[in-house]
């Protein structure tokens, strides 16, 4: 096994993707089982066995999907930033492909966070949507994901696409952070002191804490699982493209 991995054959052009495929193939079933167990226990515990909040009633149960998805939505972009930097600096192809694989997950998580937030906000704040900085920055984060994915889809040469999207991801990160602070300022400018945002620390008491932690762990596991699956797909797609191109050349 190890000999096959260290000796470069024609099967995979790069040593790195081969090693990634071997490792991820080994990890995949374990991650899948772990994720399924954690997510199931966390969600069932949260949904069936936690009391209602005295203020929010049963809507507090939305926290078990809202908070984890929001965390993944933000940290997914962070992961894309890191993998983009790794690609630009170290030239690991898998890194660029992982960033590409991550973007749709992040976009989906952003949508989940926005939708569950809207459903939560409707009975609690009396409105589906408010231009609160936190909500607005998630909407803008979603736009960043869209632009990033559109650029990946639009550029034909995969290496050029990887580099351009990496540059966009780095510049976009700076602007995303800037937007976040701009929105805090902007909202304060609009309605001074009146904050619709719930204080998370106040909200989470011990009864909700452990199932929430499990759900977050489950979402992180799910994220890793999807990243592995999707990156493996991207690596295979690249290999396929290379083979077809070589076939045409021959």
């Amino acid at each position: 096994m190890s000999e096959r991995l260290t000796r470069p054959t024609s099967l995979w052009e790069y040593a790195n993707p081969r090693r990634f495929m071997a490792l991820s193939g080994f990890l995949l079933p374990w991650v899948a089982i772990g994720t399924a167990a954690t997510l199931l226990i966390g969600l069932v515990w949260g949904f069936f066995f936690t009391p209602d909040d005295y203020r929010q009633g049963s809507t507090v149960k939305i926290i078990y999907v809202h908070v984890p998805s929001a965390m993944i939505a933000i940290n997914c972009w962070l992961m894309m930033l890191i993998t983009s930097l790794v690609w630009l600096i170290r030239r690991h192809h898998v890194s660029a492909l992982a960033a590409k694989a991550a973007a749709p997950i992040g976009a989906t998580m952003t949508v989940i966070a926005l939708l569950t937030g809207a459903i939560w906000g409707q009975p609690m704040w009396g409105t589906w949507w408010a231009w609160d900085p936190r909500l607005t920055s998630f909407l803008i984060l979603f736009l960043f994901y869209l632009g990033y994915m559109a650029l990946w889809a639009a550029v034909e040469n995969p290496d050029t696409a990887a580099e351009l999207t990496s540059v966009l991801c780095i510049v976009g990160s700076v602007f995303a952070v800037l937007s976040r602070y701009a929105l805090v300022f902007w909202n304060q400018g609009l309605h001074q002191g009146a904050s619709l945002s719930l204080d998370k620390e106040e909200n989470v008491s011990d009864v909700f804490y452990w199932p929430l932690l499990l759900c977050i762990a489950g979402f992180v596991g799910f994220f890793i699982l999807l990243i592995l699956i999707r990156t493996r797909t991207e690596v295979r797609a690249r290999r396929l493209q290379a083979l077809i191109a070589r076939e045409r050349m021959a």
Partner: peptide
Amino acid sequence: ALTVGLKRGGLLLSLIVLPLYVPTLIFGAE
């Protein structure tokens, strides 16, 4: 610069640039 090599980059250009315009617009309009 990002979209210069693309054949129909116009719409994509808007999609990429508009989120980047957010901070400038917020403070400028403010």
